[in-house]
């Protein structure tokens, strides 16, 4: 056989990533935050909910009034701020991940089905998407919390059930363009089941697209969690969450602005990391095409 000068050496994902500064920075940052969240009990110097009213509102290390054992100071109840920040990462990432699992599963499934089958199925699902888009998230969350009480589970469920629309819209469009490809007909000719075609053949083709949506949505969810916690609709005190910490720091914004600046920066950093990483991964994992 003469067709031999084929390049079968593929740069690994890892090598490609080294060439992509955004993905590298984002990935490293994300890895650090995830590590911090996972190892929280080991690295947090204090119990994040232990109060010490004698040591309230201590400033962080760059102030001259700071205390070495509270590196980032304490909040208005004398809780160690560094420990609360570390544990707060758990909530942010946990909610982000949990919500994406729920919303992604719903959205991707609906989008795939709508896009692949078309016809009245598509009409019904598109109607559901439109209906979902017309629901104001904060109001629905408010109602749900009023009914079920504020808790992490309620928060994840409510956001998960509300945020699937973007997944659905994107996968629907992608499935529509893929369903007429000849390889789908070929799969039907070898008698592959619809489930296999949808989830094992079409879905992997959307990897890059879905990755982008995931990164956008994770960032969105993390911010929403913070906002809802800030409004008292999310995580209940004394659980440390960055949004809640911002909310609690509100009263002291004038004299102790770091109470807001620290969790605020952490949020910023996390969202940035997720977006950089998602963007980079899309470029890296796209299928090899000429």
């Amino acid at each position: 056989m003469s067709d031999v000068n084929i390049e079968t050496v593929r740069p690994s994902v890892w090598r490609k990533m080294r060439g992509n500064t955004g993905a590298l920075i984002g990935g490293t940052l994300l890895a650090v935050i995830i590590l911090i969240a996972l190892l929280a009990p080991l690295i947090a110097p204090h119990d994040p909910i232990a109060q010490d009213l004698t040591r309230r509102l201590l400033p962080p290390f760059w102030h001259d009034r700071s205390v070495p054992e509270h590196l980032l100071g304490t909040d208005h109840l004398g809780r160690d701020y560094l420990s609360r920040m570390i544990y707060g990462a758990r909530v942010s990432l946990g909610v982000g991940l949990g919500v994406i699992l729920v919303s992604g599963t719903i959205g991707i499934t609906l989008g795939l089905i709508a896009g692949y089958f078309g016809g009245w199925i598509d009409l019904v699902i598109s109607f559901a998407i439109t209906t979902r888009l017309s629901l104001p998230i904060v109001l629905v969350a408010l109602a749900a919390v009023a009914l079920g009480g504020a808790s992490l589970t309620t928060l994840i469920t409510v956001l998960g059930l509300l945020l699937w629309d973007r997944f659905a819209v994107v996968t629907r469009a992608a499935a529509q363009s893929l369903r007429h490809q000849e390889f789908i007909e070929g799969l039907r000719a070898i008698g592959a089941s619809r489930t296999r075609i949808l989830f094992l053949e079409i879905l992997p083709n959307m990897r890059a697209t879905i990755l982008v949506v995931v990164s956008l949505e994770v960032a969105n969810v993390i911010l929403l969690e913070a906002a809802l916690s800030f409004l008292g609709l999310g995580v209940r005190p004394p659980t440390p969450s960055w949004g809640l910490m911002i909310s609690e720091g509100r009263d002291n914004i004038l004299f102790d602005p770091w109470l807001i600046a620290l969790p605020g920066s952490a949020l910023c950093l996390l969202v940035l990391a997720v977006n950089l990483f998602g963007d980079g991964m899309r470029d890296i994992t796209g299928p090899a095409r000429k």
Partner: peptide
């Protein structure tokens, strides 16, 4: 180009 799933 279209009859083979590009990700397999």
């Amino acid at each position: 180009n279209a009859s083979l799933n590009p990700v397999k």
